[in-house]
Amino acid sequence: MENFTPWSALAGGALLGLSAVILLLFRGRIAGISGILSGLFTPHKEDTSWRVLFLVGMMLGAAILLPMGFSIAKVPQGSTLLYVLAGLLVGIGTKLGNGCTSGHGICGMGRFSVRSVVATVVFMGVAILVVLLREQLGWF
């Protein structure tokens, strides 16, 4: 467990929680990233600008921290097929299941939504299984 970083994990998590509180309390919106993005594809009046601003803000937040000693690790170089397949599955899955790690994992579970607890257990369980199969059996 030498890679374990409990304090930065807790601090970063607290920032995510604070972001979700602010967006819901002030604007009435759930800080679920997959939903914020997919909402742009079925545009309604008065519903686009907050989404764009939030997504731009995410990149801005990262850009603000980069000169302050923080870094964004490079994504491991993998095959094009791997990233396209993974992205496609994440896109279909989050739209079909109505949420990802932030929407279900933070906002939904935080509201004690059983639906979100089930979703989180399922996607985390499947992801752990995928990694286990790869590590143990050398699949894909």
Partner: peptide
């Protein structure tokens, strides 16, 4: 507010190394 919430979220992602 929307921009600020996004900034905090992006910072959280970087600080937590997610």
């Amino acid at each position: 507010i929307a921009l600020l919430a996004g900034i905090l979220f992006g910072m959280g992602m970087v600080v937590s190394q997610m």
